[in-house]
Simulated scan of single mutants.
Amino acid sequence: MLNKRQFISTGIAMGGLGLAGANAQTAKPEYTLPEEFLPREVRIRDKLPAGEIHVDPNRFVLYLTLPKRRAIRYTVGVGRGNLYHDGTFYVGAKREWPSWKPTPAMMKREPAAYKNFLPGRRYEKGMPGGPNNPLGARAIYLYDKRGDSYLRIHGTNAPRTIGTAVSNGCARLVNPHVIDLYDRVSEGARVVLYKKANAGPSHS
């Protein structure tokens, strides 16, 4: 069980990071992410090692820690209902434009939604990477001591899902933001997914 950490944002330090295409590269170009959803560099209270990922599902934010008590804050979508799983993980793999196949649990839960992944169907071996793939432009694969946890931090071309609990347990960012995160985080980096309901980092 994770203890609540005093991982506190003390205010916006640098404003938006000015990522190229931050509001573009979406499924519906007419939709613009709210400005408060854009990545920002913030100050944190704890002196955490640089290069870690911390996800607070209560506020739909992901922090990538930087040196000198700073972090980049991204807005994410998280797992819905009881599909969100807290815990401590590490980055076991990274993929650009990853292929994807639903887990057996997902197929059992929603068989009609994933019928094209059944034996003999179009995506029996998985959906190739590309703009329509649910994992988006990049995927960061979370592992624990048993190996692949089947949890991912990944992209999406559905920007309206950011800031909501909608996924099958993973954390999602719009494609430009996940590309930025992907380029900054290293394999082996520690990833902390905080519990729902007041167990994640608190904000001032």
Rank of each mutant, 00 (worst) to 15 (best):
L151A: 09
L48N: 11
P49L: 14
H85Q: 14
A112T: 13
G163L: 13
P111T: 11
R73I: 06
N157H: 13
L135K: 02
L118T: 07
T103R: 12
M106E: 15
N58H: 11
H177N: 05
G169S: 10
Y150N: 14
Y143F: 15
K125M: 14
T88H: 11
A112I: 09
G147Y: 05
P128Y: 13
H177V: 06
V166T: 11
K94W: 03
S149N: 05
G51P: 07
R138E: 01
G92A: 09
R109H: 13
K115P: 03
N58V: 05
G129Y: 04
G126W: 10
A112M: 12
P128C: 03
A50H: 09
V174D: 00
M127I: 08
K108I: 12
R146F: 10
R152M: 06
R80M: 10
Y74A: 04
F117W: 08
K47Q: 15
E52Q: 15
Y143I: 03
Y182D: 07
R184T: 07
T75Q: 04
I44A: 06
Y182S: 04
Y63L: 09
E124G: 03
R146E: 14
D148W: 14
R184P: 02
K115N: 12
D86A: 09
H85L: 11
Y74S: 04
E52P: 06
N168G: 14
E52H: 14
P67R: 04
I53Y: 10
N82G: 10
N133H: 05
M107R: 15
P134N: 12
G147N: 00
R73L: 13
I162R: 07
A113G: 09
D56S: 10
P119I: 07
Y114K: 03
V61Y: 02
V55Q: 07
Y63T: 00
R109W: 12
R184G: 00
H154I: 08
W97G: 10
L118A: 15
E52G: 07
G92D: 02
M107C: 01
L142R: 06
I140C: 01
P119Y: 08
L181H: 05
P111C: 12
D144L: 04
N132V: 13
T103K: 15
